[in-house]
Design a protein around this nucleic acid. Structure first.
Lengths: 208, 208
DNA sequence: GTCGAATGCAGACAAATGTCTGCCTTTGGT
DNA sequence: ACCAAAGGCAGACATTTGTCTGCATTCGAC
């Protein structure tokens, strides 16, 4: 067999995987050097075997085209982070977001993100300054956490139906439910994801 | 000046940024084609201007070497989601993650993700089944939310120092603090991000 | 031992990609 | 009107990167 045992394949895989998780694909020659191969082909043959085995993917004809199998970057989506959203201003706010959030793509859905203000949803673990990712939709179901416009302000609440009417329920006993007039409520969408960043040193500013 | 107004620069930037947020840097000729330029140099000059202006970064001498500036989002990173992590098994668990989570890359840091079990951290909004993203590091500071190994099990707690000793503090009055023996504690890392998915229909299975 | 598969080495070649030079057109200022 | 700067075009060239061919070495299977 080979001069070295089968570990080499594994080392190649780990090196490529780590580089991919760190951000970008290595080139074949970078693998060669990292592994101590004297010839490019050694690295390349290992790489092609790994692709063949389904442990790596490859964008053909592209430099640094290796990737991890499954939904890599193709299914990820960037979501605009909007500060505060006024009534009709959502469309305009989309033009100048505060930043961007990365998440898995929901094909066919329109997503945006908001920063939460206030403690009104702390009972379900949505704290001030959390970022909620919202899917735009005109209606929602009982119990959904939604973002709604009430009196020109976007608010995050739990949607409930009481006596045929709509109630925006705060998940915090200190906050009273909101019972908006039927025509004073605009549902912006449903909260599909909640995020909290505990390591602000690493996020001094939102990428824009 | 130019034939077209300054918007061109902006369009180039957006194209590159979107491609970067989607996963990988475009090549100069891909920018050329996307913008409808007839010559490569048009695209390249815009790119170099953007780098000059600090709006993009560039890995010199590397194919597809453009990135977003700042320590924040040079690019997105895939983080392995590990189920439960046993003592020495973290390295092996990296080989067969339950899935992947996308977040901003923290250059130079090793990240992994865990699913939270139990209510012990509900006081700070970390609920059961939440996903925490953890940066590996051997020590942390007072008040940090950390992942630590105690008796062969990974646990999420707040780190506190009391009387010179380490206390793992639960953020829920129903849970008593853990005071591990000095040599029975292994700090896996610090929680840098918390995520909750409220729309499981859209995430029927974890991407793998 | 002999064979073959797997691995490694060496070198060359081709494709992708980045970079440079020169020139033209447009636009804004003087 | 004139000039300078910026943007754009065309083509060439250099570097990086991927890929191919051929051969040598190792080691397990027979």
């Amino acid at each position: 067999m080979a001069r070295t045992p089968n570990d080499t394949r594994e080392k190649v895989y780990r090196f490529v995987r780590d580089r991919l998780l760190a951000g970008r694909s290595p080139s074949v020659r970078e693998v060669q050097q990292a592994m101590g191969f004297k010839a490019v082909e050694s690295a390349r043959s290992h790489l092609s075997k790994l692709v063949e085995a389904g442990r790596l993917t490859k964008a053909d004809g592209q430099a640094r085209g290796y990737g991890l199998p499954g939904r890599v970057g193709d299914r990820s989506a960037r979501v605009p982070l909007l500060g505060r959203v006024q009534a009709g201003a959502l469309t305009e706010a989309l033009e100048t977001p505060d930043g961007w959030v990365i998440t898995w793509a929901r094909p066919g859905a329109t997503l945006f993100a908001l920063r939460v203000r206030g403690e009104s949803m702390s009972g379900v673990g949505i704290m001030p300054d959390d970022v909620v990712i919202v899917r735009r939709q005109p209606r929602a179901e009982e119990g959904d956490v939604v973002v709604a416009m009430v009196e020109g302000e976007a608010t995050v609440k739990t949607l409930r139906f009481v006596d045929g009417g709509v109630v925006l329920h705060a998940e915090n006993p200190a906050f009273a439910p909101i019972i908006p007039a039927a025509d004073a409520l605009t549902l912006l969408g449903k909260v599909v994801e909640v995020r909290r960043f505990l390591d602000l040193d690493w996020l001094p500013a939102w990428p824009s």
